[in-house]
């Protein structure tokens, strides 16, 4: 169902997920774009392991990017007013990341909805969780 206004949003609805590309080539581009590309933590598995990490990481805020993208794909008219992400454990580059979001509150008069957000790995372990507040046409 296409979400065009707050009236289209249902409490408890789960947003359709998309496949997040966590390939090292993508995390590298992201890290370079935000100025975190030096050092290899997000761009090179070997260099990251030398730092004591299990491998190159997906930048935490890249997870935030996947989650806000999921919101925009679900409701192109939605504007993310606030997004809060807790980095519970590292996400590894080249490892699958599974995103999900559910509608937890709706204010139809204001055109505002609240969402719970989660990113898990293949082992169903939560890596990132958070919330978002979005605004839609009334």
């Amino acid at each position: 169902m296409s979400i065009e206004s707050i009236a289209d949003v249902e409490f408890g609805a789960e947003l359709p997920a998309f496949e997040c590309d966590t390939a090292l080539s993508q995390t590298s581009q992201f890290a370079d774009a935000v100025g975190w590309g030096r050092g290899g933590r997000f761009t090179d598995h070997d260099k990251a392991r030398k730092e004591g990490l299990p491998g190159a990481l997906v930048p935490g805020i890249m997870g935030m990017g996947f989650l806000t993208t999921m919101i925009h794909r679900w409701a192109p008219a939605a504007r993310v007013e606030h997004v809060d992400t807790v980095f519970r454990a590292p996400m590894l580059a080249d490892d699958p990341a599974h995103i999900s979001a559910v509608v937890t509150d709706i204010d139809e008069e204001e055109g505002v909805a609240e969402l719970d957000l989660t990113i898990k790995n293949d082992a169903d372990e939560t890596r990132v969780f958070g919330t978002a507040r979005i605004r839609l046409p009334t």
């Binding site: 774009a33 890249m62 993208t69 925009h72 192109p76």
Partner: peptide, 17 residues
């Protein structure tokens, strides 16, 4: 904010808007 880098961040996180 560099416009090109902003687009890169959007693109690699799957943004479509």
């Amino acid at each position: 904010i560099d416009p090109e880098k902003s687009v890169t961040v959007a693109r690699v996180t799957g943004e479509v808007l």
